[in-house]
Structure formats: C-alpha cells, structure tokens
C-alpha cells in the first residue's frame, strides 16, 4: 500500500484526521517553498500537496492566485516543481502534486508520471480533470504506481460520486464549498452529507478541503472526515511570518484535527 494509505492509517490509529497542507512550488521562492513545507511537516502536516503554478488558475481565489503569480514571475518551471517534490519526499513525507491539467498534458502525461515517481512523488490531484477525460492519465498513473486524486463537489450526484470514486486512488478530495480556494468564515453542513455519500461509494479515505483555514474548522471536519486539507491559510501565514508562521499554523491545525 502507498505511503498515503499509511499516513491515513496512522492518523486513524491516533484517533485524529490526517492533516494535508498545500503550498505552490516557488512560493515565496524556490528554496523558500522547500523550507516552509519542511516547517509545515515539523508542525504536524502528514501529507503534502505541492501546487504546480499555472497561468490560468480558475479554481483559485485571490490568495493562491497572488502566490502563483509570484512563483511564475520568478520563473518556476515544471522541473522546479519536480525538484521540490524530491526535496520533500526525501524525508519520507507522502508528497503529491496538485496541478491544472494543461501543464501535465503539455509536459507529456507519461513523462510527468515517470518523473514524479522517480522524484519520490506518490500522487497527483487534478482539479480540472474529470474521469471522463482521464483515459491516458489513468494508464500512466497505473503504470508508475502514482495515485490519482479526483474531486467530488457538493453539487455531485450520487451517480457522479460513484464514477469519480471508481477512478480515484489514494484518497478522495471532497470540496467543502461551491467556489474557489480561499479562507471562509463558515463551512456549510452540506459537506458532512457529501462525505457520507462518498463513503457509500468508496472504501478510500475522504479528505475535505476548499475554504478550510482555522483549527476550529479543522476540528469540526475531523469528526467525520479522514483528512483535512488547508492551502490558502498556509500561503497567508507564510506571507506574514515565513517558515515560522507556517510551522505555527501547522501546530494549531494539528491540534485541531484531534477528535
């Protein structure tokens, strides 16, 4: 079984949800991202998502858009993302890439899966790729033992959840809000129902993200989900307090995900 599986199993045995932290590669700088992600892991992040900066991030709100723009303006390339994965995965942390689809298709589906696996990456989250368009991707990820994570949304029918669940490996990403990434003051109760509907369709762990930023929200979600995903809040914490800010937020969120 994959290291993603192990991370969820360990969290479960400790009676808590797994904490999944996101940061775009190249933010605040190439080396700064590695330093900050290591600090997030030291603070209690179990699984790392490294964002692949893209010019047209339609699923992202202002916080991540700004971070991605800084990264792209500094010249971040796909090879830099792969190197960031290598640096984090070297410590044994389960490390995924989160990427819009076009950069992967342009880089080469097979080549991307190969290079990610060689760097120690264990999975890829593709927010704008649905199972209907994933034929070549399924083959490449299967061939290289890379988990592919698709998303379910509050608007997903049970039929679509079943389709997504049947093609996903690693864990299922459940979007907590209808909208783009970024902190929200409150998370609707509908997400609990989505997690329950997803469990009907799959044995895989279900992690909840989009809009989750505070230890209180993490605690609430940890009561019914296997993982809690936080992204924009880490970007904001780093903007204010650098790696130390990332570590402190991770510590608070890690306390929050205890049941």
């Amino acid at each position: 079984m994959s290291s993603i599986h192990d991370a969820f199993a360990r969290a479960k045995s400790e009676n808590r949800a797994a904490l999944i932290g996101y940061l775009p590669a190249g933010y605040p700088s190439r080396d700064g991202a590695i330093e900050c992600i290591k600090a997030m892991v030291e603070g209690g992040v179990d699984i790392v998502e490294i964002g692949l900066p893209y010019s047209d991030p339609v699923m992202d709100g202002p916080t991540i858009q700004a971070a991605v723009e800084i990264s792209l303006n500094a010249g971040t390339k796909i090879v830099d993302v792969i190197e960031t994965v290598r640096a984090i995965a070297a410590d044994g942390t389960p490390t995924l890439v989160m990427s819009y689809w076009n950069p992967i298709e342009r880089f080469g589906v097979e080549k991307f899966a190969t290079e990610l696996a060689n760097a120690g990456g264990v999975g890829v989250i593709t927010p704008d790729l649905t199972p209907e368009e994933a034929g070549a991707w399924n083959a490449a990820t299967d061939a290289h033992g890379v988990d592919r994570v698709f998303l379910v949304a509050l608007s997903s029918t049970n039929e679509r959840i079943a389709t997504v669940a049947s093609e996903t490996t690693g864990f299922i990403y459940a979007g907590a809000v209808m909208g783009v990434t970024g902190a929200r003051s409150s998370i609707s109760g509908a997400i609990q129902d989505l997690v329950a509907r997803t469990r009907q369709a799959s044995e895989l762990p279900v992690a909840v993200g989009l809009g989750v930023s505070t230890p209180e929200q993490a605690h609430e979600i940890a009561q019914y989900a296997d993982g809690v995903i936080v992204g924009s809040a880490f970007v904001s914490a780093i903007e204010k307090g650098g790696a130390q800010g990332a570590r402190e937020l991770a510590e608070k969120l890690a306390a929050g995900v205890k049941r």
Partner: peptide, 19 residues
C-alpha cells in the same frame, strides 16, 4: 461527451459538472 474528433470535451472542476 462534446468531442469534435480529438478536440473539445470538458475540463472543468467537478463542481460545474452538474450545471
């Protein structure tokens, strides 16, 4: 699925699939 030969299709967030 909205393909014109190899082109077209849907590459969108799952949240928009129902709409």
């Amino acid at each position: 699925l909205g393909h014109f030969g190899p082109f077209g299709g849907r590459f969108v967030p799952e949240a928009l699939m129902a709409a």
